[in-house]
Design a protein around this nucleic acid. Structure first.
Lengths: 215, 215, 215, 215
DNA sequence: CATGAATGAGCATTCATTCAT
DNA sequence: CATGAATGAATGCTCATTCAT
C-alpha cells in the first residue's frame, strides 16, 4: 500500500506488486463482463475463468468466494463515484443548481462509459452478504445525502421549487442519472456527452419548477 | 393448455376452469415473490413450491419449465400495462401533455402497488429465452412508441420543448416512472398517489421546458 | 414416529414409512462401510452412493450434508450401547463385580459383531461439528459414569481394590472393551464370545486386585 | 536424501547436515500437530506450511508428497518404541513379569509425553501406501512378538496364568498401554508416571491371574 | 531456499426435471 | 392432482503438486 521507492530492492518488488494490481483489475473486469451478461447468480466462476483464459481453480488465487468478485466491483464503482463527487464539490463559485447540473452530467458520462459495472452496481446489491450489503447501503446513503443537500441549498438560493420534498426530487434525479444505461447503445444514438447534457437539462427543469418565475 | 370450451356441462366446467385459473394466478404470485427476493437465477423451484405449500414435483403440473413462470409473469405485467394505456387513451378532451401526466400518474400508482412483478419485469428480461425475450421487447417498443407519440403531439400543441428529442425525453419519463419501485417502502414515506403526483409534476416540467414561455 | 395403526389409510402409509426407514438404515450402513475403509475425511459421498447403487445427487434425498451420515452413525451406536446398559442393569441379584463382568462381555460381543460402526464411533468424533461433538461427549460421560459407579459399588462390597481410583480403573476397562476391534478378524481367531470371556476375566482381575485376599 | 559424507570440509558440512536435520524434525513436528488436529485426510499441506510459517510451495523442498510426512512420523515413532524395547531388554536380573511391568510403565510414560505422534501412529496406518503400510505392520508384528514372548516366559516362570492365550493377553496389554492417550489431559489428572504405575499394576494383575496362587 | 501463480483433478452440494405410484 | 425418490449435469470451492523466477 505504501510506496517504498528508494530502498535496496525496489524494482522487482515494485514490479511484482504492480503486476499483481494489474491482474486484480483484470479479474474484476472479467467478472464485470460475465455478471453483466448472465447476472450474478446466473454467472459461473468457470465463465469468469474462461474470460481470463485461466482455469477456475486458478481464479481462487485472487479470491476466496465468488461474492468477493461482486464486492470488489462495488468497491471500484463506489471509489469512482466518490471521485466524481469530490471533483464536483471542488469547483468554486457556482450556484447549487449549476453544481447539480454538473454532477448529473459527470455522473451520466461516467455511467455510459462504464455500463457493465454500473448495471451490476444497481442490480445485484441483494446478492451481497448482509454485512457487505449494509456497507454499500451506507455508501449510497451518503451519496443520497449529498444530492439532497445540494437541492436544499438550491431551494434556499431560490433556484429550486420550495414546495417539493428534496428527498423525493433527489430520487427523481437519480432515476434520470441511472436509467440511460438501460437504453444507451455505444455507437448508435448520441454520444455520452450529448445524452448527459439533455438529461441534465431535464433534471434541472424538474428541480427548478416555478421557482424561476420569482427570480 | 387444452381448450375445453364447448362441452355439455358448461357450469361445472366453467367453475373448474375458474379454479384452475385461480390456482395458476397463485402460482405466478408465488413465483413473483420468490423471484423478487432471490432473483430469477437465484430462485429455486423448491422455494416456489414451498411458498405454495406443495412439493416441487407437484409444481410441474402447472408448468413445464421454471422459465414458464417468468414468462407468465411478463405476460401478466404486460396485460396490466396495456390496460393502463387503453384507459389513458380512452379519456377524451384533454391535451397531450395532460394525457402524459395522467399516464405517468396511473403507471406509478400501479407500479407501487405491484412492486414485485414490476421489479422482475425490469430486471429479468435477459433470463428469458431468445424467442420470448424478443416478444417482450416488441411489447415494450409499442409501449415506448405510445409515449413518444404523445410527446411529439405535445410538441405540436406547443406544450413540449421542441428542441429536445422525443425519444430521449420518453426515456427520461420512463426513468421517473420506473425508479420509485427502488426506494418506495409501503407504510413509510408518502402514499403511492402522492408520489405519483410529485413525479408526474417533475416529468411534465422536464417535457415542457421553455415551450411554456411561448404559451 | 408414533404408530397410527388402525386409521383409514394405514397400510400404504405404514408401508411407505417402513420402506423409508429401511432405506435410511441402508444408507447409514453404506456410510459405515465407506467411512471404515477410508476414514471420514477420506471417504467421498460418491463412494457411499456407489455402495448404495445410486447417484451421489440422489443420496442428498436422505441427508443434508456428509456430516449427517456420520452423526446418524453415532446416534445408532449410542442407542445400541444404551440398550446394553439397560439390559445389564435389569439383571437382578448379582454383585457389582459380576455386573461389570456381564457388561464387559456384552459390550465386547456387540463391538465385535459391529466392527465398522464401533471403529468409527471411536475414531471420528472430532470430525463432528462442535454442537454434535458436545452431544456425543455428554452421552459418553454418562456411559463413563455408569461404569465408575459400578466399580465404586464393588469397592464398597469388598470385591474391588479400594486403593485404586475408580475413574482410572474405568478407563482401563474401556481400553480392554474397545481395543479388540483393532485385532479381531472374523473367522480367524476365537469367536466373539470366547474373546469376550477372556477379556472380561482380564478386567475383573485388574479390578479385584488384592481385595479378594480380604474376602 | 543425498549423502554428502566424505568431502573436504567435514565441519561445516556436518553443521549444515545438523541444521538440515533440525529443520526436518520441525517439519515432522508441524505435520504431527496438524494431523493430530484434523486427521491425515482432513489436514492440508497449507495448514502444515502455516504452522511452519512458510508457504506451501516451500514445504515441497522438504518432501515429495504429503504422505512422506505421515511416513516420517511413523518412522520416528517406531524408532522411539524400539529404543524403549532395547532399554527394557537391557535390564538384567529381573523376572519376565517385572520386565513386562517395566515395559508397560516406560511405554505409557512415553506415549503420554508424545500424545500427538502416538495418536497418529494408531489412527492413520491405513492412509499409508500399501508398501509403507506393510512395512509398519511388520514393525508392529515384531513389537507384538516381543510382548508375547515375555508373557510366555512369565507363564513358564509360573508368574502368568497358564490357561490364557499369550497372544490375547498381549492384546489386552496393548489396549491398556495405548488407551490413556485418549483421556489423558496434561495438567489435569495425575502425572504420566502415576498413570503408568496404576496401569502397569492393572496389567500385571490381569496377566498373573490364578498363577500366583501356585506361587 | 523461498515464492506465489498456476494447474487439474476431485469434492460436497444444488437443482431443474422426470416419473412410477 | 399430488407425492417423493431418483436423475444427471453443473456449480462453487479445495487442494496436492509443479515450476519459473
Amino acid at each position: 500500500v505504501t510506496a517504498r521507492e528508494n530502498n535496496n530492492a525496489p524494482k522487482s518488488a515494485g514490479r511484482r506488486r504492480d503486476r499483481r494490481h494489474k491482474r486484480d483489475d483484470e479479474v474484476v473486469a472479467a467478472a464485470a463482463k460475465v455478471f453483466y451478461e448472465h447476472g450474478y447468480s446466473g454467472a459461473t466462476v468457470q465463465g469468469i475463468a474462461d474470460e481470463l483464459g485461466i482455469l477456475k481453480g486458478s481464479l481462487y488465487h485472487y479470491i476466496d468466494t465468488k461474492e468477493d468478485l461482486l464486492f470488489r466491483l462495488f468497491e471500484q464503482v463506489h471509489a469512482e463515484v466518490e471521485e466524481i463527487l469530490d471533483e464536483v464539490m471542488a469547483v468554486e463559485d457556482i450556484t447549487a443548481l449549476e453544481r447539480i447540473r454538473l454532477y448529473v452530467r459527470r455522473q451520466i458520462v461516467h455511467n455510459l462509459e462504464h455500463l457493465e459495472p454500473i448495471a451490476i452496481y444497481y442490480h445485484e446489491l441483494d446478492r451481497l452478504s448482509p454485512d457487505r450489503r449494509r456497507a454499500v447501503i451506507a455508501w449510497r446513503r451518503r451519496h443520497d445525502q449529498f444530492l439532497r443537500d445540494l437541492i436544499r441549498q438550491a431551494q434556499e438560493e431560490g433556484q429550486a421549487d420550495p414546495t417539493q420534498d428534496p428527498a423525493l426530487m433527489a430520487n427523481n434525479v437519480f432515476a434520470t442519472i441511472i436509467w440511460p444505461y438501460r437504453w444507451y447503445r455505444p455507437g448508435r444514438s448520441e454520444t455520452p456527452e450529448q445524452i448527459a447534457d439533455a438529461c441534465a437539462e431535464f433534471v434541472v427543469r424538474g428541480i427548478v419548477g416555478k421557482a424561476q418565475q420569482a427570480a
